[in-house]
């Protein structure tokens, strides 16, 4: 399979920053992505907590313009969990930015975007070809699939997508979003609540480690979100994904060198670097956790499988 690359060039996508980084950090991060990273599309915006959104708002235009000037497509992502008036207002405001520039991460956003071209984010439950077809009929032109989908489901979706005029991406790097809650766990840890959080999540640029009682690293807390401790790495599965009709590979930002991460995935996608060498180089970049690829293989998401690949 590894040698049968699809004819169309795969796109490298940078997902939104899921963490609460300082505004200077976020701005500089995107400036560097604009100037140096072989990324085709950048998804901007707050997807986890509406309370974080105002901080970066003053820099949004500047960052978006810099990324566009560097030839990157910019898409604005919406919140994954929408319930409170402030959350609803934020989603409405982002959706009002216009048509195919917006990625819906919940049905609230979809209700604003239906009828015009838009993107569907990985927090929407697009598990099957019927859902994909319905969403295409509402104007979806690109869908980022949920991280827990196994290869056989991805293959069926990849087969259905071209006739629907939809392109597909999957996350290939970074901690995997596993759950959302109405409660903020960073606030809980500090004896506060979501309303009085004082931005406790700011202290953990890759999420807060949650270890089992026998000391095994397990999960990571990010405000209302729970992520995997392990770091998804599908560098070894890129060729399979391409053959299935998945045309986009999504990197989820972390505090490690994401320009270097992007360069490695670009090289693998272009068939100029083998997965073992890619894995070794990625491991040297201090990723947020050990590599895992279980979901793709229909196994526990925490597992790293692949008999033909060297252990990192």
């Amino acid at each position: 399979m590894a040698m049968t690359m699809a004819a169309a060039k795969s796109e490298l996508i940078l997902g939104p920053v899921p963490f609460h980084w300082s505004v200077e950090t976020v701005r500089d991060f995107y400036f560097r992505i604009a100037d140096e990273a072989p990324i085709d599309a950048v998804y901007l915006g707050e997807v986890v907590c509406h309370k974080r959104a105002p901080f970066f708002a003053p820099y949004l235009d500047e960052v978006a313009n810099r990324l566009k000037a560097a030839g990157k497509r910019v898409v604005f992502s919406t919140l994954a969990e929408v319930m409170l008036p402030a959350e609803r207002r934020l989603v409405e405001a982002v959706c009002a930015m216009g048509g195919d520039l917006v990625e819906a991460n919940d049905v609230s956003a979809l209700s604003h975007l239906a009828g015009r071209p838009h993107h569907i984010g990985p927090y929407m439950n697009v598990y099957n070809e019927d859902t994909l077809k319905f969403l295409a009929g509402k104007g979806a032109v690109h869908v980022s699939l949920p991280a827990e989908l196994p290869a056989n489901a991805l293959r069926a979706l990849g087969a259905a997508a071209p006739a629907l005029g939809v392109s597909l991406d999957v996350q290939v790097f970074g901690r995997v979003p596993l759950a959302l809650s109405a409660r903020c766990y960073h606030a809980r840890l500090t004896g506060r609540t979501k309303d009085s959080c004082q931005y406790a999540c700011e202290a953990d640029p890759d999420g807060l480690a949650l270890d089992t009682l026998e000391g095994t690293p397990f999960l990571a807390i990010n405000g209302i979100q729970t992520l995997s401790h392990s770091c998804l790495n599908l560098a070894g599965e890129l060729a399979d994904l391409q053959a299935m009709g998945i045309t986009g590979f999504r990197l989820s930002p972390h505090s490690c060198d994401m320009v270097a991460v992007a360069e490695i995935f670009r090289t693998v996608a272009d068939d100029a670097l083998g997965p073992d060498e890619a894995e070794a180089r990625l491991a040297a970049l201090d990723p947020p956790g050990p590599f895992a690829n279980g979901f793709f293989h229909g196994a526990a998401g925490c597992i790293r499988t692949g008999a033909d690949r060297a252990q990192a």
Partner: peptide, 21 residues
């Protein structure tokens, strides 16, 4: 449960069996 229903892959992450699927 504490997590938003229909959006939790914790069991699948630990076991390979999915709450959603």
């Amino acid at each position: 449960g504490m997590m938003a229903e229909g959006r939790c892959s914790l069991t699948n992450y630990a076991t390979g069996l999915s709450t959603n699927m």
